[in-house]
């Protein structure tokens, strides 16, 4: 069993490699599931506090670790870029998902619904988590080096390939939403782009 001692070691060993700033704190709990939080000089509006993620695409502890870390880093990226904020107010962020309406429109998200994809019903800031989750998944794919597979392995010579992305919109039953054409652009493509 991975005990708390090992978790401490993992934290200490991995902290320098993931390039977090001095003010950040990284916590990893491995209890059959993992939760992770990265916090720092940010307001307490919940961007960096243990966002449990969809584990269905994680097949191991390391997958979970990478995905969780990238999820929280994505939150931090949008916060640092001043896109994700707690204080947009009801005019600029009427659905209170911490993303402003202009940005949501630009990326095919519904500015009037905090949970455009319908996948984050239990999240106060659903769309923010949807974006973080997509980026986390992209990072996980990069970490697994899926970009090595070229067109000959995953392409038309074998028929229409299954989507490498396990996202499925309820609106269309595929990984392309009926309502937007932009959201999945955020998933890095094969080749790591």
């Amino acid at each position: 069993m991975l005990g708390r001692g090992m978790i401490g070691w993992l934290t200490i060993l991995l902290l320098p490699t993931i390039g977090l700033g001095q003010s950040d704190r990284l916590q990893v709990y491995f209890k059959g599931k993992a939760t992770l939080s990265v916090s720092g000089d940010v307001p307490s509006c919940g961007f960096f506090t243990s966002c449990p993620l969809d584990e269905s695409y994680c097949s191991s502890f390391w997958d979970l670790f990478i995905a969780l870390l990238e999820h929280e880093k994505s939150h931090r990226k949008y916060y640092t870029a001043r896109i994700s904020r707690c204080d947009w107010g009801p005019q600029q962020d009427p659905d209170s998902d911490s993303l402003p309406s202009w940005w949501e429109r630009m990326h095919g998200l519904d500015p009037r619904r905090r949970d455009t994809t319908g996948a984050f019903r239990f999240d106060p800031d659903g769309d923010s988590d949807a974006v973080a989750e997509i980026e986390a998944f992209g990072a996980l794919e990069r970490a697994k080096k899926y970009w090595r597979y070229d067109w000959a392995q995953y392409s038309m010579q074998w028929g229409i390939p299954p989507s490498p992305f396990p996202w499925r919109y309820v609106s269309s039953g595929t990984n392309i939403s009926r309502y937007d054409r932009y959201l999945l652009r955020m998933v890095p493509r094969t080749g790591g782009r």
Binding site: C45, T49, C86, D123, D125
Partner: peptide, 9 residues
């Protein structure tokens, strides 16, 4: 009680 984000739940 937090007013925003995941801690609310």
């Amino acid at each position: 009680h937090p007013q925003r984000g995941d801690p609310m739940v």
